[in-house]
Amino acid sequence: MAEIFALVEHRQGAVRDITYELLTCGRKLATAQNTKLTALVFASPADKIVESIQERADRIIVMEHGVFENFNAEIYQLALRDILEKEKPHVTLIGHTAFGYDLCPALGAEMGIPFATDCLDIEFTGSRLRVTRSVYDGKLDAHVLLKEHTSYLVTLRSGCFTPEEVSLATEVVKQESPVTEQPEYRKFVDYIEAAVGEVDITKADIIVSVGRGIKEQANLPVMEEFATAIGGVLSCSRPVVDAGWLPKDRQVGSSGKTVKPKLYIALGISGAFQHIVGMKGADTIIAVNKDPNAPIFNEADYGIVEDLFKVVPVLKEKILDAKKLKG
């Protein structure tokens, strides 16, 4: 039986969380298909990365070369094509991240392999692959059937599988890289870190986060004051940054920061998955939104279905009271 492959994603020398989710999903598929799970590591150096995923796959194929130090979709595409042609896996799993986003469609189109992007779940139905996807701004889900083929590519959304500890006997296989230099037409130059502002939201214990629901920039000072009063900092979802109301370093979500505060208060944030992935690690999440069907309530511990402008003054007073009693 053809195997399940998972592409290991790493950045600046560290394995990214999505990798463990891919391996968990891959193991589910491999078990269902009674086959093996192989992890693909393209890296330089590769040792630490291989070590981080030891025992999580039946086999690890390693290509170690300087060209893999930083992600470049063109190089990964060449390397993957080489392996896929030789190994002919049944399904290759890639993260639906900035990494997989840039890579998977081009690889599938080049090789004529059916692919599905941004999947929440995958299952076999007979010999065909069925994926679950989120559509229409996350309001609905869809089942999509892939065309019958011997091989498939799937990119998996972050946060859909919980990484599991396993101890498999892992065989490590080294292979030569078919690529040795960056192509002229697309060269990785460097990474640029977002400018660090005066507030580091990743270190805060209490975060008040605002979204589209704050309506206008003029409402920010009140929110900032609320955050400060209860001993927290103000962050936001993407639309607020797009509108230029808050700097990029205050953005929580897949393209912003990942935060893990003790208390996260989401005000007027609908809860697009791009935002959820950045804050789901918070200990306690309280969401305020007028729309009872807002997806944020699927992630929050406590929900308040009300106008945030009416709720904020009350919360401020009550939380301050609680602080006083405590102090």
């Binding site: 990214r16 900035a98 002229e184 870190e193 977002a194 990029k248 370093d249 393209s255 990942t258």
Partner: peptide, 12 residues
């Protein structure tokens, strides 16, 4: 990319 990081590419 993630976490506010940008990837700078030189392309033709």
């Amino acid at each position: 990319l993630e976490g506010g990081l940008l990837e700078h590419l030189a392309m033709s």
